[in-house]
């Protein structure tokens, strides 16, 4: 009658904290990564960690709707989006390295400052949260802010989009940590938006390259302020 694995609250909590730590680490890794293929792989890995942590929360707290949310993450963030991105990269045959506007050590330092800010902001929320993952809300917010930073510092279109998607990962992580996920209809809607957004991005990549001969956003300076 005893299940094969008994996941006590304490063990579950520790595993989730581990996942959170890996999420944060991956956030920094993406910030520092220059190569675009590695960036996609890191994004896939982040999705996988998000999936694992959602399953652990679902298992320890018996919130069955979280399994659906985890399934959604698995299909969308671990399988579908990385596949589409890989295909796009192949079709666009972009093999060049990714360069950043700020140099990497400076970006990392700004990132650390952002993490400190995130933990301070999340403090009042963590104190009130009754979920077993309350300690991770700060990390989730930090992930969102790190992706935000990545979006600002990148000058190429594809990394900007990956940053956008990573931000969505952070937000889902926040939702799971603070409230055991959002109602199913909302999560489905968000997933649909992300999917449609990705398709539009894909179309845009081709259009931008056709018009500017490059996917570098810095070439887009045609509209003058006056």
């Amino acid at each position: 009658m005893t299940p094969a694995i008994i996941l006590s609250d304490a063990l579950g909590g520790q595993l989730i904290n581990l996942c959170a730590a890996i999420m944060l680490l991956l956030g920094f890794a993406m910030l520092a990564q220059r190569r675009i293929l590695s960036l996609i792989n890191l994004f896939m890995l982040q999705g996988a960690v998000l999936f694992t942590s959602t399953v652990i929360v679902a298992y320890t707290t018996h919130q069955s709707h979280l399994y659906w949310s985890a399934g959604l993450t698995l299909t969308l963030k671990v399988i579908a989006l990385p596949y589409i991105l890989h295909r796009l990269i192949r079709k666009l045959s972009v093999k060049w390295d990714v360069e950043t506007i700020l140099n990497i050590p400076t970006t990392m330092l700004v990132g650390i400052a952002l993490v400190v800010v995130a933990f301070n902001v999340a403090q009042p929320i963590s104190q009130l949260s009754g979920t077993i993952m309350r300690a991770t809300i700060g990390i989730a917010l930090a992930c969102v802010l790190l992706s935000f930073l990545m979006m600002i510092t990148r000058s190429k279109a594809v990394p900007q989009v990956i940053a956008f998607l990573a931000m969505e990962n952070g937000l889902f992580f926040a939702a799971t940590s603070a409230t055991y996920g959002m109602p199913m209809v909302v999560e489905l809607g968000i997933a649909l938006d992300v999917m449609v957004g990705m398709v539009i991005f894909g179309v845009f990549f081709f259009q931008i390259r056709q018009q500017f001969d490059s996917l570098d956003i810095r070439h887009m300076e045609r509209i003058k302020e006056e």
């Binding site: 956008f164 931000m167 926040a174 939702a175 957004g197 931008i208 956003i217 887009m220």
Partner: peptide, 30 residues
């Protein structure tokens, strides 16, 4: 080229902005 630039700017800025709004929504739900 100009319309693509405008659309990209719109997409990225509003995408970032609206992600903040989602975080706000999560907080209210919480």
């Amino acid at each position: 080229p100009e319309s693509l630039e405008a659309a990209w700017k719109y997409f990225i800025l509003c995408g970032v902005g609206i992600a903040q709004a989602l975080f706000g929504t999560i907080l209210i739900y919480f």
